[in-house]
C-alpha cells in the first residue's frame, strides 16, 4: 500500500518535471523552427544553441512589473490564468507513456491513473479549458479581450463536437474507454492513423482549433484584436497564458499520439528479443519521440498556413468537419462489422 503510493508520487513528480521542462523548451523550439522556416537564425545567444533561453525568458517574466489595470474585475482576472493552465496539466494523468516498467521485481504500469473512463476524462477537462480564455476575456473589461473571449468560446464549443465525434471511431475499434487499452489495441501496424485516416485528419483539425493555434488562433488574432483575451495581462500572468498555450499543445500531442499514432508502441519491437527493462524504456522513448514529431508538426503548420476568417472557421467546423466526423463513425462501425480490425 505504502509502496504503491510512493510509486504513484514518484511517477507524478517525474511526469510533471519532464512535462514542465518540455513546455519551457517548446517555446524555444517554436522560435528556432520558425526562424529556420523563415530562413533566420532565431535566439541562439543564451547558452549553446540558445538552450538557456527559456530560463532567461522565465526570469524576465518574473521581474517584469505586474500591472493590474484598475478597470478589471479583480477576482476573476486573477483566477483566469490558473483556470487556463490547470486542465492541461492534469489531463496528463491518464495518458499512458509506456507499457509496464519491470523494476525491483515489480511491474510498474507507466500511467499515473488508469481510470476506466480516461477518455471521457480528457474531454471533460478539455471542455473546462474554455473557461480560462472566456473569463480572461470578460474580466479584462476591454473590448478586444471580450471579443477574443467570445470568439474563443464559440470556436471551442463548435470544434469540441468534431473532436469528440472523430474520436468515437477510435473508441468503436478499441471497445474501451481506458487509454492503455486503446493504445494496446493498436499493436503491430494497426495504428488508427492508417485505419482511420479521415478520423485522424478531422481530429487533428479540431485539436488545432481547441488549442487556439494557427490557422485557428482567432481569439488572439493580433492584427484585429491586439492580443485577444490576454491583452490586459502582464508579467507572470501573461506568462501563465503563454505556458497554457504550450502546455495545451503538449497535452494535445500526447492525446493524438495515444489515440492515433499507437501511443508507446513500436511495431514488432516485442519480437526483437530485448530484455524487458530495455524494451519498456525503448517504448517510453518512442512515445516521447512521437510526441516530439507531433509538436514539430504543430509548429510547422503555424508558420506555414495563414489565419482563417471567422465565418470560414465556423463554416469549416459545422458544415465540413462535423458531417465528415459522423461519416467516420459509420466507417468505423463497418470496420468492426467486416472484422477488419
Amino acid at each position: 500500500m505504502m509502496t504503491d503510493l510512493l510509486i504513484t508520487i514518484v511517477k507524478i513528480l517525474v511526469v510533471f518535471g519532464v512535462y514542465l521542462t518540455m513546455v519551457a523548451y517548446l517555446s524555444l523550439v517554436e522560435r528556432r523552427v520558425s526562424a529556420f522556416i523563415q530562413d533566420r537564425r532565431g535566439p541562439n545567444r543564451v547558452g549553446p544553441f540558445g538552450l538557456l533561453q527559456p530560463l532567461a525568458d522565465g526570469l524576465k517574466f518574473m521581474f517584469k512589473e505586474d500591472l493590474i489595470p484598475h478597470y478589471v474585475n479583480r477576482p476573476v482576472y486573477l483566477l483566469a490564468p490558473l483556470v487556463a493552465l490547470v486542465p492541461a496539466f492534469i489531463t496528463m494523468a491518464v495518458i499512458p507513456f509506456g507499457n509496464t516498467l519491470p523494476l525491483f521485481g515489480r511491474d510498474i504500469p507507466l500511467v499515473i491513473a488508469n481510470v476506466n473512463i480516461g477518455f471521457l476524462y480528457i474531454f471533460a477537462l478539455t471542455s473546462m479549458g474554455v473557461y480560462g480564455v472566456v473569463l480572461a476575456g470578460w474580466s479584462s473589461n476591454s473590448k478586444y479581450s471580450l471579443i477574443g473571449g467570445l470568439r474563443a468560446s464559440a470556436q471551442m464549443i463548435s470544434y469540441e463536437l468534431s473532436l469528440g465525434l472523430a474520436a468515437v471511431g477510435v473508441l468503436i475499434v478499441a471497445g474501451s474507454l481506458r487509454l492503455p487499452d486503446i493504445v494496446a489495441a493498436q499493436s503491430g501496424l494497426r495504428w488508427n492513423f492508417w485505419m482511420q485516416p479521415l478520423g485522424f485528419i478531422i481530429f487533428l483539425i479540431a485539436v488545432f482549433a481547441e488549442t487556439n493555434r494557427l490557422p485557428f488562433d482567432l481569439p488572439e488574432a493580433e492584427p484585429e484584436l491586439v492580443g485577444g483575451y490576454h491583452t490586459e495581462y502582464s508579467s507572470m500572468k501573461f506568462a501563465m497564458f503563454f505556458m497554457a498555450e504550450y502546455a495545451n499543445m503538449l497535452t494535445a500531442s500526447a492525446v493524438v499520439v495515444s489515440l492515433y499514432l499507437g501511443g508507446w508502441q513500436v511495431p514488432y519491437l516485442e519480437q526483437a528479443g530485448l530484455p524487458p527493462l530495455l524494451l519498456s524504456l525503448a517504448q517510453v522513448l518512442a512515445f516521447v519521440l512521437k510526441v516530439g514529431v507531433m509538436l514539430f508538426f504543430f509548429v510547422w503548420v503555424r508558420w506555414t498556413l495563414p489565419r482563417f476568417r471567422y465565418d470560414q472557421l465556423m463554416r469549416l467546423g459545422w458544415k465540413i468537419t462535423l458531417p465528415l466526423a459522423i461519416l467516420n463513425i459509420f466507417y468505423s462501425g463497418y470496420l468492426v462489422v467486416a472484422k477488419w480490425v
Binding site: I117, L120, Y121, F123, A124, T126, S127, M128, V130, Y131, V134, W138, L150, S153, A154, I157, E160
Partner: peptide, 17 residues
C-alpha cells in the same frame, strides 16, 4: 464525467456566453 462535460462544460459555457 458527463456532469462535468455537459453541465459544466457545455451548458454553462452557453450561459456565460
Amino acid at each position: 464525467v458527463l456532469q462535468v462535460l455537459v453541465y459544466a462544460g457545455a451548458i454553462m459555457v452557453l450561459f456565460l456566453f
